[in-house]
Simulated scan of single mutants.
Amino acid sequence: MRLGVLDIGSNSAHLRIADLSPGHGPAPVRSVKSAVRLAEATDREGVIGRPAVGRLVGAVREAAVAAAVSDVHELVPLATSALRDAANRDAVAAEVRAATGISIGFLSGEQEARLTFLAARRWYGWSAGPVLLADIGGGSTELAYGAGEEPEIALSLPLGAGRLTRHHLPARPPVPKKRRKALRRHVRSVLAETAAGIAERPAPVRAVATSKTFTQLARLCGAPKSKAGPYAARRLARRDLQDWIPRLATLSNEERAGLRGVRESRAHQILAGAIVAEAVMDVLSLEALDVCPWALREGIFLHRLDALTAGRPVGSPFTPAEGTGSLPPPVPVRPERRLRVAAAR
C-alpha cells in the first residue's frame, strides 16, 4: 500500500509518501515540504497568529493535492508540539478541517518518542543492543531508552530549540556568555529532574540522535554531506560540539546560515539546539552520538506496516498495557476524493 504521513512541526509541514510492503523497509516515493513557522507565530499566551494559520491551511491543502495525485491510499496528518501545545489548537484544527477536509491528529510527546525509537531500532537492528535515543525538535526534546523494539523509558521535555531560543536568548545575536550559561543551567536542571531514570540504567551499546537539529550539528562538526546518502556513517562528538558553541554565540543569523550544514530557516535556533545536544550528552555521560537517518515519520510508516502485517486495526496502540493512546486514524484517499482535491488546485 502507499501511505502518506503529513508531519506538522514548529517550522514546516512535511509530507512524506512511501510504499509499504511486508518484509521490506518503507520505499520513499515523494516528499513535499512547506514552511508554516507556527512556533515563531505563537504569542506568550500560546495563541498561534492568523498569518500562520493561513500558511498551515495552504500547506495542508498542498499536501492533500500531492497525496491525491501520487495515488496515496491513506494519509496520516499529525501535529507535534507547536500545534499540540497551542492554546487555540482546537480552533486551528477546526479551521484546517473546514478549509481542506483534513482532520489533524495529535501525537503526545511520549508517542513521538516511542515511534522515533522504533525507527532507530529498526535502522540499526538487534546488534545495536540497548539503545538510547535523543531527538531535538522545535518545541520539545524526546528521549528514550530500551533493549527491545519498544523503549522501557520514553520522555518528552520542553527543551525544543525554537522554544528555548524564543524564551531564553536575545532576539538577535551575539549572545552574551552570561545568557548562554544561564540557558545551559536551565537545560541541565530539566534533564537532571526528568531524565534521571535513563541515567540510572546500564550504559547503552549505541547512543543515537535523530532530527534536523542533530543532523545539522553533525554536519557542522564534520559529518558527511547529505548527498553521501543515508548509509554514510555520521557521528556527533561532544568535544567538537563544545568547540562550536561559543563560536555560534558570536555569529549573526546570516553568518550561521553560511556555515556547512546550517539551513537559513534554522540558523536562529542552532545555538539553542547545540546547547541542548551538549547538555544531553553531558548529563547522560555520552561522548558521541550516531546520527540516524530514520526518525518520526519512518516510525509511523513502520507502525502502519506492522499493523498491516499482523492484521491489527490501524489506530491500535503499541500494546494494551502501555496506555499511551492510539495513532491518529488515517484518512482514506479515495479515487473520487483524488479527483475532487486535484480539481481544487
Rank of each mutant, 00 (worst) to 15 (best):
L296A: 05
P246S: 01
S140Q: 02
L284N: 03
P246Q: 05
Q111E: 11
P330K: 11
C292Q: 01
L183G: 02
E74Q: 14
S156C: 06
A192N: 12
L157R: 01
A279M: 06
L259G: 07
A228C: 08
S81C: 03
R121T: 01
R256P: 02
L6E: 04
A63K: 10
P173M: 09
M1I: 12
A94V: 09
A195E: 02
E150L: 14
E110M: 03
W244S: 02
R338E: 08
V69K: 08
S81N: 13
R50F: 05
S12C: 10
A223V: 09
A272M: 01
G261R: 06
V187P: 00
N253A: 11
R304C: 08
G258W: 12
P230Q: 14
T324N: 12
V262G: 05
A82W: 05
A128N: 07
L75H: 06
D135T: 07
R2A: 05
A41E: 09
R172L: 11
R247T: 12
Y145H: 10
G162T: 08
S31V: 13
A233H: 13
G4M: 07
R163D: 01
L169Y: 07
L302Q: 08
E149M: 10
D7I: 07
H268D: 15
V341G: 02
P328L: 06
V131F: 03
L75G: 06
P224V: 11
A64S: 14
S140N: 04
P151C: 10
L289R: 01
L302T: 03
G25Q: 06
L143A: 07
S103A: 15
V208D: 05
R266F: 12
G162L: 10
V291S: 10
E322L: 15
H168Y: 13
E336V: 14
L251I: 12
V96M: 05
D282G: 04
I48P: 01
R185W: 07
G148N: 03
A233V: 14
G49T: 04
A134T: 14
H168S: 13
T116W: 03
P317C: 11
G197D: 15
I300C: 01
S326R: 11
C292W: 00
D71C: 08
A119L: 02
A41G: 08
R340Y: 09
G46Y: 11
A288H: 09
F117H: 03
S34T: 11
R266W: 13
D135P: 06
L217D: 04
A196P: 03
V92H: 02
A257I: 11
M1H: 14
A209C: 10
A120K: 05
S108P: 00
